[in-house]
Design a protein around this nucleic acid. Structure first.
Lengths: 254, 254
DNA sequence: ATGCCTTTGTGAACGCGTGCACAAAGATTG
DNA sequence: CAATCTTTGTGCACGCGTTCACAAAGGCAT
């Protein structure tokens, strides 16, 4: 997961569990691929493999949407694509603004996955006057001063923050004040928002840290196994891989 | 969260719940900020606010690490920074390779959050021969042919995949074969890996789709409230905001 | 030393998510 | 039409994660 979430308590929405909602895009992607190959129907088992989940979970997820399958046959691919798209709100076009056009912002602007699925980059916004007018991904960057007008004129309700951590909260507040009610935050900060505003957080370094934790644990198990006489699984030549623990605490508590 | 995960069943590692592990980086970041302001101690309540969680959860999380607090006082900031860093395996230096130096790969290479916390970009790898030798973020890009040698020479165990979806699985297999056991995947594909290899997935478009779902639901509630006579909360001037539902299914099932 | 105040650490209850296992439903074949 | 086979949809049980609420522990003032 990438991810962190900030949701208000009222999680269940129209009976569809949050965990299921989070998997719908996964199913949708797998189904779209099948659709492009003109596959007419698919079983829960096949689709589950393609989406990387188990089939019981997938069936239960779909059961929240309704009974869209045919017993003994499977699911109609096209029909399911439509139903999930509608459920996710992708049958309409969502204008999105990206604030902070650094390396990451530019990468996001160029990312094809947005346009292809119901999202349209309505504007790129940056605080640097030097950037103003310069085109990124074919869209001219606009200055932060224009933020409120852009949101308003385009009826934008989803904003992406890709600024440095320092400016994120302020940008967030301006977005919300201008009418944005959903924010995707790439800045490594906790954003404070009023009720009714959704924030999802994507944090690259957090994901890496979680991997490091598991990696360390694996190394620890290897070491323990080796100590117990069991030879560790053959690992590539590793230059100076430290074992876990073994350092001295930097500071002790009073 | 940003977020998809692919974990093997053996979730609990040394008694620390997975959910807790995922929050440790959050606490670490908040604590580091306090440390930089030379704050000596912090209460669970204060730290919880800074990290964006509730205090009971935070205390329970810390209880899995040990009893590092002092009742009536709080937690020693420096000591806790060290303990969490050690638990996450950040007291050692993790060499990381980034494969696929497009917009996103370049953004990742330039991202300061890596180097600052125990990670070191050991190499940038791309399949395009044109890229070879060209420096990105001060590091010369190397060709995919070198992949196995780079992994081996540097003892790399963590790899980041930022290639297009098409090539991701193949890159993944080569990384794993060369000794990588943890992968952070930005490509919009399900990666298949052998047991013992951890994969975390970050998918930008999935996060947006989840936001769209909630956004649509909000619009639906507004409409419902309006219908019921309750005036909807005043929303900014919105040009042509479609209501939920109201379209015709594209295809009906047999 | 004693009593009060603050804050941690955790037992217990609850709710959500997952996975099993099977009955119901439809297709298919003879 | 009956028998069989396939695949869905779901009731149920279990385990993880969250939250409450409070006893235990330490600091501090008198």
């Amino acid at each position: 997961m990438a991810t962190g979430r900030t949701h208000r308590p009222a999680t269940r929405s129209r009976g569809i569990p949050e965990a299921t909602v989070a998997r719908l895009p996964l199913y949708l992607r797998a189904l779209t691929a099948l659709s492009e190959r003109s596959v007419p129907t698919v079983s829960s088992e096949e689709l589950a493999v393609a989406a990387g989940v188990n089939s019981a979970k997938l069936r239960k997820d779909f059961s929240y949407l309704g009974s869209y399958g045919t017993r003994g046959v499977g699911y109609d691919v096209e029909y399911l694509v439509y139903q999930i798209s509608r459920e996710l709100g992708l049958t309409q076009d969502w204008p999105v603004v990206i604030v902070g056009i650094g390396n990451l912002g530019a990468a996001l602007a160029n990312y094809g996955g947005f346009a292809s699925r119901g999202f349209r980059v309505a504007a790129l916004i940056d605080a640097d006057p030097e950037m103003a007018g310069k085109p990124v991904a074919g869209i001219p960057v606009q200055h932060t001063d224009e933020l409120e007008r852009i949101i308003s004129d385009n009826g934008v309700s989803i904003g992406v923050i890709a600024t440095p951590a320092g400016g994120a909260q302020q940008v967030c507040e301006r977005l919300v004040a201008a009418g944005v009610t959903s924010i995707l935050n790439f800045a490594p900060t906790v954003l404070t928002v009023p009720d009714g505003v959704d924030v999802r957080k994507v944090d690259l370094s957090i994901e890496l840290q979680i991997l490091a934790f598991h990696e360390q644990r694996k190394a620890g198990e290897e070491a323990a196994a080796a100590e117990a006489g069991t030879p560790p699984p053959i690992r590539s030549t590793a230059a100076s891989r430290k074992g876990p623990d073994g350092e001295v605490p930097a500071v002790m508590p009073a």
